[in-house]
């Protein structure tokens, strides 16, 4: 199975590991990730205002490209996923936005949200299946207690993202089980880490991260996993006494034996 794949700006630079191990694992799991030519940054923030059209264009370009290829579009970074999925929803549901975007883009065939947008985790859950994934694990992470950190963008708003139960998600926990480790449930796994304000108000970001870390530690987590480079930065750099944080793809690659170094 071949998917169109939108890595996003950060996965080319500061978030390389998220991308690198995701691609390596995909090979083992038997699906191909193909980057469209000339993709552009999604903007990293979903434009909530109805009259913001220009900020939606780069998402629609990559969505329309996937449609032309006849493929589903896979994303890996939480922020990219959030932006592209919601812009796609606008193209499906908001006639005004859809009309204006199509006038700007002058595509050969108009685009109205036909492409299905999947997060890499959804590919694992809905296309590969966590049971099938489990069978391919060669180095199970037995005994490791891992807290899943979802953050905001993957889950909310639930009715638009359609990713998981936004108040009690389980996709990352199921993933953790599939790679042989033990998931740790903690309530702040879907509370905001404060990433967006790290530039302007570091002390506030620290306060948020510390609450999350305290909660995860108290519930017995030894490490956290995430799918978001900004959460990753924030959890790592702004915590006063934090746990180790890894991208979920890195652990996936490790469990599948494509990342040979030990934990």
């Amino acid at each position: 199975m071949t998917y169109s794949y939108f890595p996003g700006c950060t996965l080319r630079t500061k978030g390389k590991e998220l991308d690198q191990w995701g691609r390596a694992a995909a090979e083992v799991l038997g699906f191909a990730l193909e980057e469209p030519e000339n993709w552009q940054c999604c903007g990293a923030v979903y434009p909530m205002a109805k009259d913001e059209i220009a900020t939606r264009l780069s998402s629609v370009r990559v969505l329309a490209d996937a449609k032309a290829q006849g493929r589903e579009l896979v994303t890996l970074c939480s922020a990219c996923h959030h932006v592209i999925k919601r812009v796609n929803g606008d193209m499906q549901r908001d006639a005004d936005i859809c009309d204006k975007v199509n006038r700007y883009l002058k595509l050969d065939t108009p685009y109205a949200g036909e492409t299905n947008v999947l997060h890499y985790l959804e590919v694992l859950r809905d296309r590969i299946g966590f049971d099938a994934l489990k069978e391919k694990v060669v180095h199970p992470l037995t005994g490791v207690k891992i807290g899943a950190y979802y953050g905001c963008l993957l889950l909310r708003p639930g009715k638009e993202m359609g990713f998981d139960n936004p108040e009690n998600p389980r996709i990352l926990e199921d993933f953790i089980r599939a790679i042989g480790a033990e998931p740790v449930i903690y309530a702040r796994r879907n509370e905001c880490c404060g990433g967006y304000c790290t530039l302007e108000n570091k002390s506030y970001a620290t306060k948020q991260v510390d609450k999350i870390m305290d909660n995860a530690k108290a519930q017995g987590a030894q490490m956290l996993i995430t799918a978001c480079p900004l959460c990753m930065y924030n959890l790592k750099e702004n915590a006063t006494n934090g746990l180790d944080v890894k991208y979920f793809t890195e652990l996936l690659a490790q469990a599948l034996g494509v990342k040979e170094e030990a934990k």
């Binding site: 996003g8 700006c9 950060t10 630079t13 500061k14 978030g15 940054c41 903007g43 990293a44 923030v45 434009p47 900020t55 970074c77 922020a79 990433g195 967006y196 790290t198 530039l199 302007e200 480079p229 900004l230 990753m232 930065y233 790592k236 750099e237």
Partner: peptide, 18 residues
């Protein structure tokens, strides 16, 4: 003045967007 070596691009992009 706000940059640090680990800061992901996404943080700057999003700040400009917002």
């Amino acid at each position: 003045e706000k940059l640090d070596p680990e800061l992901p691009q996404q943080a700057i992009t999003s700040a400009f967007r917002k």
